[in-house]
Design a binder for these strands. Structure first.
Lengths: 238, 238
DNA sequence: AGCGATGCTAAAATGGTTCTGAAAACGCGT
DNA sequence: ACGCGTTTTCAGAACCATTTTAGCATCGCT
């Protein structure tokens, strides 16, 4: 899941980022309201964590602006005061949820999950596709019952693949959803990571799940793309 | 267990904190009602100890407010008077138990344990995981029958680990649950304590129980997150 | 078959995270 | 106030993940 954090206290910001990364999310930071508003309006995030107290820009205003601009990304507001007044003002401005500082970090993660439940379908703890299973809380991947150890990035990438199966995913899309805003579209990082994933996830097994679609991207599927055997119904070329 | 104490008499507050620490609990203090109410509403505590007599805020009111805000954390009230009137007023406001000052410290600990019995599952006196055993009342840890001596913090940390096994615990989560509110997310205290624990709990034995998940946190488990069960032939990582 | 474009992969470079031992700060009991 | 044990900070080392690089393999088209 990709989350934007708008928070101008650098310590707090960086703490939140680390925590969300550890929870398996991709996370961009904006340290000013202006920057944050622009970034949020790209619509590329699954959720926004927004501090109400910002130097350059009131969080409430920022929230209202975004909604006026038809940005529908779920917004979770962070307030210093847990007074009901602030809460109402925030929800009124279009925030979806609200958390008073100081807050319980697990609660932040839980609420983000709740906010994006629609997006993430059921927030099933178990992702499954074919003979592959990902146990999210245990952070464990198995295929045919065998454990597969992955690094953090590999795990996030595989999670994205398994959540978007049977669909061609361009490098641009993968870069946008699995990497943060510093992603360089000219590098071949994605290829390298796909290769690493394949080595662990596909090579030891008979049936590959990760397929290359030349000139387009990759596809995660138990069915190889383009019927290899029987019919090759005509595809439009361009 | 994490407990919030709301008490504006500094001597009393510090005495309670020390005592609860000694009983193996993590303990945050609030010296004013306002502050206490905010803190309590984070939902991060297993119980709240609340003095009825506060300068800025009546304890009874505070309790009622919390309940109105749907905070369900067990609350134990401390009253100067042991009159029945106060007791009834407190329980009426939503407190779960009540203790008249002066009180026997062991009674406070016992009542807190009773209040949180549901939370802590059965308040099992014996925690067990694999060949490790923690005898809570005696505060003793053994592995393969051998006693292991731990400092207080090490003990509390290990207790948290053994109560949350087979789950990846991020530093943020550990910091929140094993340290008090002054925890600094940028320090490496956790790493240092984990190292100390490992030296006593893992190094002398063949099978490590504490595993590092790089970029994420730690996991307490007898099943290492790695190691494909089949072959371990090639040592290529990545 | 040949060619250029595209994808793959090993290995080096980079950058970041974790570990460790020692010193400093703190807290407790005397 | 002093000394002792615990907890925290710090800095360097070791370790690991990620990215870059560069050469090779493969694909699709002519």
């Amino acid at each position: 899941m990709k989350i934007l954090v708008i928070e101008d206290n650098p310590r707090m910001a960086s703490a939140i980022q680390k925590g969300l990364n550890a929870a398996g999310h991709v996370c961009d930071m904006c340290i000013s309201g202006r920057e944050g508003e622009e970034q949020a309006s790209t619509g590329e995030y699954d959720a926004v964590v927004l501090d109400v107290m910002l130097q350059d820009h009131d969080g409430i205003d920022l929230c209202r602006n975004l909604r006026r601009r038809e940005v529908r990304t779920p917004i979770l507001m962070l307030t210093a005061l847990s007074g009901t007044k602030d809460k109402i003002a925030g929800l009124d401005a279009g925030a979806d949820d609200y958390l008073g500082k100081p807050f319980d970090f697990e609660e932040l993660v839980a609420r983000l999950r709740a906010l994006t439940r629609r997006v993430t379908d059921l927030d099933s703890a178990l992702l499954r596709y074919g003979d592959m299973e990902i146990d999210m809380p245990r952070r464990r991947v198995t295929r045919q019952g065998k454990y597969i150890e992955l690094t953090n990035k590999q795990f996030v990438l595989l999670e994205y693949l398994i959540r978007n199966p049977d669909r061609v995913l361009s490098r641009a899309v993968l870069g946008q959803n699995v990497w943060d805003m510093n992603f360089d579209p000219f590098s071949n990082v994605i290829d390298v990571h796909i290769a690493a994933l394949r080595k662990k996830v596909d090579r030891p097994f008979d049936k590959p799940l990760i397929h290359t679609i030349m000139g387009v991207g990759y596809m995660f599927s138990s069915q190889p793309p383009q019927g290899s055997s029987a019919d090759d119904s005509d595809l439009e070329q361009n």
